[in-house]
């Protein structure tokens, strides 16, 4: 009888990192569907392209770091990063843009920091921020929702999309590009919000964006139900963003967009449920997560309204990632049997 000595516990919950990652990827499905529905095959093609690249980069890095290959590839984390990048990029982003983004995310933001679990910043957001700064033209050229073109569901054919993404972007670019609602709102000149709503075609079709956001939220609620993450971060994020927006909207409805607009356009929902909840780079304790979420919400509103960039989810999350260790130090929970929680590194009560 070969008996082994192993430390307790002897039973484990049948969960695994790979399983969690898979579940998160599945939860993006409603969002992917909505994106495809409104913006065409580009999103799907990007996801596949990005995933292939991500797995390749990951494998190369693991090999270079002399780590077991299949063990790490199986954890699905690279694919999740790729999916998130693909969802964040414009649907018709040229192939090289995606490639650069994935390279930055996997190689620089993740593996160079020590691989899974060690990255201080969310890889997808690092990549997004980098390409946003480096290639502003490509990044701000979204397509208008296809609902614009004619009657009913009418998206660009799959092959056309392929050639658009992998062929020469410039030839066709102008035919499809359009600003996002956030862009429109930012660059509305001297118009009041009311006038902007009436004047802009893009804003007239904002419904597509609402729908996509709703789809993301659905996935998020599924994850919440599955207890993949706690409610603290998304709730604090959305409530603080909504709260600030409401406050300014009440002060001056002409100058500031309404809270609903803020919550449902741009990357808000994707950020709230899929990016800010990334456990690796966010705060640890529940209290910490609330502060983390509030920070993101506030920064998003500030950058969107007074900053240079139309959307700010990536920057806000990155900034708060930076603050996460600090938040952790001051938001330790009160342990059982202690009167007060400990604070700071030295654990002063």
């Amino acid at each position: 009888m070969a008996l082994i000595r192993i430390t307790s516990p002897h039973v484990h919950k049948p969960t695994s990192t790979a399983g969690i990652m898979r579940l998160v990827i599945l939860a993006t499905l409603p969002g992917i569907l909505a994106m495809t529905f409104f913006f065409g095959w580009g999103t799907l093609i990007n996801i596949i392209w990005a995933s292939a690249l991500a797995v390749t980069f990951e494998a190369l890095c693991i090999k270079a770091r002399h780590r077991p290959l299949s063990f790490y590839l199986k954890d699905n984390s690279a694919i999740l990063t790729a999916v998130l990048i693909a969802l964040a990029l414009p649907p018709f982003a040229p192939w090289w843009l995606t490639a650069i983004a994935v390279f930055v995310a996997i190689v620089i933001a993740k593996q160079l920091y020590g691989g899974i679990g060690q990255n201080p910043f969310n890889p997808a957001m690092v990549a997004y921020a980098l390409v946003l700064i480096s290639f502003p033209v490509e990044m701000t050229r979204w397509t208008a929702p296809f609902m614009l073109y004619g009657e009913g569901w009418n998206i660009l054919a799959f092959t056309d999309t392929l050639s658009l993404i992998f062929g020469s972007w410039a030839e066709h670019a102008d035919a499809f590009t359009s600003a996002t609602p956030l862009d429109e709102m930012r660059h509305r000149g001297g118009l009041t919000t009311e006038e902007a709503w009436r004047a802009s075609d893009v804003l007239a079709n904002v419904g597509a964006w609402h729908a996509v956001s709703a789809a993301y939220a659905m996935g998020g609620v599924l994850l919440l139900y599955k207890k993949i993450f706690s409610w603290h971060t998304p709730a604090a994020f959305l409530l603080s963003l909504g709260g600030i927006a409401t406050f300014f909207y009440i002060i001056s409805p002409d100058t500031y967009a309404d809270p609903f607009f803020h919550l449902t356009v741009g990357g808000t929902m994707l950020g709230a449920f899929f990016i800010a909840t990334d456990p690796v780079s966010s705060a640890t304790s529940n209290k910490g997560k609330i502060w983390f979420g509030i920070g993101i919400g506030c920064l998003i509103y500030i950058i969107r309204t007074w900053g240079n960039y139309p959307d700010a989810v990536a920057f806000s999350i990155l900034l708060m990632n930076l603050a996460a260790p600090f938040i952790d130090q001051y938001t330790q929970p009160r342990a059982y049997g202690h009167k007060a929680p400990k604070r700071g590194m030295k654990g002063k009560a």
Binding site: T15, S16, T17, I20, F71, D75, S77, G115, I116, G117, Q118, K227, I228, F229, S230, P279, V280, S282, T284, S285, N286, Q332, P333, R334, A335, Y336, G337
Partner: peptide, 19 residues
């Protein structure tokens, strides 16, 4: 054992409210 992804499940399970 794999790398810790700081998922926080342990914190939710800890009966002594530790990290």
């Amino acid at each position: 054992s794999q790398a810790c992804i700081r998922c926080g499940l342990c914190e939710q399970a800890c009966p002594a409210e530790l990290l």
